[in-house]
Computed example of a mutant assay.
Amino acid sequence: MSNVETRPEQVVCTAGGLPGPNCDQQGRSPVEIITSREVPLGGPRAMTVRRTLPQRQRSLIGPWCFVDHYGPADVSVTGGMDVAPHPHTGLQTVSWLFDGAIQHIDSGGNAGLVLPGEVNLMTAGAGICHSEVSTEETTTLHGVQLWLALPDATRHQPEREFEHFEPEPVSLDGGEMLVFLGRLGEGSSPVRTHTPLVGAEIRLDPGAVIDLPVDPRFEHGLLVDSGDIALENVELPVASIGYTGIGVEELRIANRGDEPGRLILIGGEPFPEDIVMWWNFVGRTHEEIAQFREEWQAEGDRFGAVDGYVGKGGPGKNADGMGRLPAPRLPDVTIKARKNPPPQVQGGPAE
């Protein structure tokens, strides 16, 4: 998925807020709540997504640097997803659906359907471009789009990779989980990543409480899609992320409601490098980002081309008549590297 904001925010990270004094945290790990903001996904009938990462409060959780959560959206009202060819550098895109289907085509010669319960991971490396269009048969679109920052050692690779995996459900006492990246409990994924991390969908029965063993080297974020969810006895609003820092060996997750709950757990070792992230590019300096933008605008070889894109406006065009997304104007100030807070829950109000 593209970041289609015409004025992408350059984020400066400050300390996040702790939950209020009414939650019983005795004997449990502290939790930082990261709320979402709504962002239109392009066009006059834009589908709205809820973005939790990046933001001022916290820019990364492990290598996870972008979290969009959308739906359930009625395609007859929103028009669905129609993201014309757009570029990426220095990252991996992780597509995970709950409902609907999306046609993916990229400049590495890969094409395929993103379907519920099946992860699709695209590695940009030095440069790639792709398109994403919800299928004609899709009536409801619901899922998450996630990005992983690549370390400097592999972010320049020329290969444009695409991997697909359908994880088997792993039973929990009160639910189940689908581990689509990394390893968690009895679940594991063969999909290649470039830093230690985990990604999983967790489904909780009404009234269920689980104590989930996790890697203490990782910081974790729990995104709530549905349910009356509490993490470490802290209530989490729908579409928010509950964050826990390193050193935690077990997460207590409860669904206190009468309806099933669904969550996305992300985590990983703290990312050791400062990144510059603007629009759809992840780099290390302002000058590098400016070069990426210039090459995309010039239709240079770095990104290649998408062959076969059919948007809502017909072959090769989206609903606005565009065959590719133009890059926004660069800000008039130098884009600085993101300084993420330490990998522990931050105290005090968010600034």
Rank of each mutant, 00 (worst) to 15 (best):
30 P>Y: 06
73 A>E: 15
118 E>I: 12
106 D>I: 03
83 V>N: 10
124 A>V: 04
64 W>A: 00
77 V>I: 15
26 Q>E: 14
126 A>T: 13
98 F>H: 13
91 L>I: 12
42 G>A: 13
43 G>D: 00
38 E>L: 14
83 V>T: 15
42 G>P: 00
62 G>M: 03
48 T>I: 15
62 G>E: 01
94 V>W: 10
42 G>F: 03
53 L>P: 13
91 L>C: 09
85 P>W: 05
41 L>F: 11
34 I>H: 12
112 G>C: 12
93 T>V: 03
69 H>A: 14
107 S>I: 04
45 R>F: 14
95 S>A: 10
129 C>V: 05
80 G>D: 08
124 A>M: 06
76 S>A: 09
38 E>I: 15
97 L>P: 02
47 M>A: 10
126 A>C: 14
91 L>S: 04
34 I>W: 07
31 V>R: 01
55 Q>C: 14
116 P>A: 13
130 H>A: 04
107 S>T: 08
106 D>Q: 05
57 Q>T: 12
55 Q>D: 08
56 R>W: 01
63 P>M: 15
116 P>C: 12
56 R>G: 12
101 A>R: 15
47 M>V: 04
65 C>W: 05
128 I>P: 01
94 V>A: 07
43 G>W: 05
53 L>G: 01
111 A>Y: 03
113 L>H: 10
50 R>Y: 15
62 G>Y: 02
34 I>V: 15
65 C>R: 03
89 T>S: 09
39 V>T: 09
130 H>S: 00
123 T>R: 00
130 H>K: 02
24 D>A: 08
51 R>L: 09
26 Q>Y: 10
56 R>I: 04
92 Q>M: 05
108 G>R: 15
89 T>P: 11
50 R>E: 07
53 L>M: 15
73 A>K: 06
66 F>K: 00
59 S>V: 12
103 Q>F: 01
32 E>I: 08
90 G>R: 07
118 E>A: 12
89 T>E: 11
33 I>M: 06
73 A>R: 06
90 G>A: 07
26 Q>S: 08
57 Q>A: 11
40 P>A: 13
25 Q>A: 02
87 P>Y: 11
99 D>G: 09
98 F>Q: 15
60 L>W: 12
32 E>N: 07
47 M>D: 04
114 V>G: 02
114 V>Y: 07
73 A>L: 07
69 H>Q: 14
70 Y>Q: 15
67 V>F: 00
107 S>G: 03
59 S>Y: 09
95 S>T: 12
26 Q>P: 01
51 R>G: 07
129 C>A: 11
82 D>A: 05
72 P>N: 13
103 Q>R: 14
28 R>F: 03
65 C>A: 13
116 P>I: 14
66 F>H: 06
125 G>Q: 05
30 P>Q: 01
27 G>N: 13
75 V>Q: 08
91 L>E: 01
87 P>G: 07
96 W>K: 05
36 S>L: 00
85 P>L: 03
24 D>L: 14
121 L>G: 01
31 V>L: 00
49 V>Y: 04
96 W>T: 07
43 G>M: 11
108 G>P: 11
61 I>P: 00
74 D>K: 11
72 P>L: 04
41 L>I: 15
73 A>D: 12
80 G>H: 09
126 A>K: 14
101 A>S: 13
37 R>Q: 08
77 V>S: 10
43 G>K: 01
55 Q>N: 11
76 S>F: 08
130 H>E: 00
44 P>H: 06
97 L>D: 04
